[in-house]
Nucleic acid binder design. Sequence first.
DNA 1: AAAAAAT
Length: 502
Amino acid sequence: MTNFADLGLSQKVLSAVTDAGYATPTPIQAGAIPPALQRRDILGIAQTGTGKTASFVLPMLTLLEKGRARARMPRTLILEPTRELAAQVAENFDKYGKNHKLNIALLIGGVSFDEQDRKLERGADVLICTPGRLLDHFERGKLLMSGVEILVIDEADRMLDMGFIPDIERIAKLIPFTRQTLFFSATMPPEIQKLADRFLQNPERVEVARPASTANTVTQRFVASHAKDYEKRAVLRDLIRAQDELKNAIIFCNRKKDVADLFRSLDRHGFSVGALHGDMDQRSRMTMLANFKDGNIKLLVASDVAARGLDIPDVSHVFNFDVPIHAEDYVHRIGRTGRAGRSGASFTLVTRRDTKFADAIEKLIGQKVEWLNGDLSELPEPMESHDAGRKDRGRDRHKDRKKDVERSGKGRSDHRSDTAYADSAAELEPVAERAGAVKPERNADNGRGHASRNDRPGRAQNAANDDNRDRRNRHRRDHDDGPTPVGFGDEIPAFMLIAGKA
DNA sequence: AAAAAAT
């Protein structure tokens, strides 16, 4: 059996690894570290959870001990698809590089340029970036790529999914081709293979099996549900309450809007819950993730921004509120639990319209997923359908809602469909401030005298406001029988016509 | 039927 000490890493690195409590390298580490230290190119085929990050961080630290950085000329460059992943790699450099005095710069969007500029100016040994922000800095003349000795492209298949490949090609062209390139991808579709052929010179290919956890230690169940959101939310709540050993859970939705909606619903039902998606401001994203990792929040409602790569140890449950449209996403999502040999449980809500995607999942993972309480054919009819008393009940509910709204002092009069507020009375109450329930946007300007641009409520919040505004306006328009107001009447100033042509 | 990422 290999030991970290046998891989050729420096003493400084080894002592940090020992302090972190590791003695034995994972297969990807054992396979990639020695050739990386020989300055070979690496083609690493490995998923997250296999110790992939350390397989490039540790040799990079060792190689960086020789030489030092010059202003605006980073020595190494790591590209990551999401801001959270980039931040996570930076944490790894802090952990394993604690005996080094290296300058690490995290260049990601959504945060201010100032500190990033300062670090570039000082000379960065390691740049960890999302592609957009890196190119932004480059175009502003803040850095030269001609001194980069090592380029790491992480999660290449995901970069491809996200349309980053043109950016990656552009960045790679700016870096001397005498560089060493470490290229990682979870899968190797033809496009990625082509890209690897272009970027790598005589690479050492290191491939590790996908972590066994997916198949073996995670209990997977499908749960039949009707398609209406409020019915799905009720099924989910019952499911969560029925779990004996729920320590914490990630709940995935397909859309950002649904993340926001489900978060609000669970919050109003008194769950300890947070939300994470890409339209939230960066500070909230970071706070939310930290609170979840620290156990301050028990449930995290998330988009697929959280599906891959994020290292959240010890998630006991994964719930798919929506069946993922791409089957691979299912594998990534449930891979958030059952990590490091622990057991985990995953539940996927399936409605009649999802059967195609559920079938695709079973085909991809090569096994049937058991249904928890009977499959879709055994699903009882929803309470409301074919019910003579339905209209009356709906009207009563409407009355209740109006009362609640008035009580809460928010006299909104927009007409929503019955189903929109049928979830439960609890959802109609104003959100109570509860200790432990951390809300996404409200935390944003903790301790700040003023709101900077990054502290503004996330776009999701704005989108929700927009929705309300639209609804009100639509309502108003419907009942508007006066003359249509137009900005300038019939007279349109000449300058506007010119601008309009451009 | 989506999400992610520069502003």
